[in-house]
């Protein structure tokens, strides 16, 4: 195993190296581990300070697990996580506090993630209380009002409850809560996937503005590549627990180099009935992460697979400046 951390520079705010998360499946009367769900299986990447790194892939590819492992909400099986150049993989939970404040998460379902019995003001103030910030009640109230304004909500709404808000507004509340403690790094896990398109655009724009305004670094997780393309500086494409390709956003779309990315892009229906493209329809389903294919995990659905693909686990290697792919073939017309 050679350590390949794409774009390893000191400018990385967050870095994961050979990250693995296997979920054990227990069975039998002795509850022994009978198999493992290889949710994240040797993933390495860095997120530069001030950038938005998009993480895309179909459901079950391991995106959420990567995001939550970075935040240490899930303990990694192997590999390292570093934040601001410091290895935080093994810092005991009770000493994680100062990192927790710097790293926050925004969830997909803004309803499930907000306590229905708390007022919006209390929901947003809660992290301030937990982290003992903005000491006085007055300072907290001011901060909450400021946050509501920041996310485009009326500060008069502090005494209302989540159910009084629409999906888009609830997502804004979730964002305000995440920003309350002035984090540097945000994991946004499918933050717009549950929203209608017109509202989705509002929230994407808001996140973009906040990133500029507050200098945030964001890991933006989504299964919708089109949304990710708008907000991300760079994008990592995951499949079955592995990163298949990583490149600057527009490069990835204009010149995909990995067969999976090519197929994924071609599967997205274009909102223009006059454009008829040749479509690569991938056959079959994603294999089980309990028993992923040997070699390249994509090979069972890849139209370019050769015998060798079953034997070699492709490394994520740089194929042009800043553009990485994990595929042993570099002779595929159109992809090389």
């Amino acid at each position: 195993m050679s350590a390949v951390v794409p774009e390893t520079t000191t400018a990385n705010l967050v870095e994961v190296t050979h990250l693995k998360k296997w979920f054990p499946i227990r069975g039998g009367i002795l509850s022994r581990v009978v198999a493992n769900v290889k949710a994240v299986n040797d993933v390495s990447f860095g997120v530069k300070k001030g950038e938005v790194l998009g993480l895309v892939g179909e459901s079950g590819s391991g995106k959420t697990t990567v995001g939550r492992t970075i935040l240490r909400l899930i303990e990694p099986t192997e590999g390292t996580i570093s934040f601001q150049g410091q290895d935080i993989t093994h810092i005991p939970k009770n000493q994680l506090r100062s990192y927790r404040r710097k790293m926050q998460i925004i969830f997909q379902d803004p309803f499930a993630s907000l306590n229905p019995r708390m007022t919006v003001g209390d929901i947003i103030a809660e992290p301030l209380v937990i982290h003992n910030l903005e000491g006085s009640a007055q300072a907290r109230n001011d901060r909450v009002a400021e946050l509501l304004q920041l996310v485009g909500l009326n500060p008069d709404h502090v005494r209302r409850y989540p159910h009084e808000f629409s999906g888009g507004q609830r997502q804004r509340i979730g964002i305000a809560r995440a920003l309350a403690v002035r984090p540097e790094f945000i994991v946004a896990d499918e933050p717009v996937s549950a929203l209608d398109v017109s509202i989705q655009a509002q929230v994407v724009n808001l996140l973009q503005d906040l990133k500029e305004q507050l200098g945030l670094t964001i890991l933006f997780i989504a299964h919708d590549l089109a949304v990710v393309e708008y907000i991300s500086d760079r994008i990592a494409v995951m499949y079955l627990g592995k990163v298949m390709e990583l490149a600057p956003s527009r490069d990835l779309y204009l010149k995909p180099r990995h067969p999976y990315t090519e197929a994924l892009l071609s599967a997205i229906p274009t909102p223009d009935p006059t454009i008829k493209r040749e479509r690569i329809v991938l056959q079959g389903d994603i294999p089980s992460p309990i028993n992923p294919p040997s070699g390249c995990v994509f090979r069972t659905r890849c139209r370019y697979a050769i015998a060798e693909c079953a034997n070699t686990v492709p490394e994520l290697k740089e194929v042009s400046p800043g553009h990485f792919k994990a595929c042993i073939r570099d002779d595929i017309p159109g992809l090389s």
Binding site: S166, G168, Q169, D196, V197, S198, I199, Q200, A201, Q202, V204, N205, Q208, D224, L225, A226, V227, E229, Y230, R250, Y253, L254, L265, I268, T270, P271, D272, I275
Partner: peptide
């Protein structure tokens, strides 16, 4: 018109602006 403008367009990745045109307000 608003709905069409608010959809992220991959096919325009080369030329589009980095901002979506949202429909303001809520349903």
């Amino acid at each position: 018109m608003g709905l069409l403008n608010s959809v992220p367009r991959l096919d325009l990745a080369a030329t589009h602006q980095q901002r979506l045109e949202a429909i303001p307000g809520n349903v």
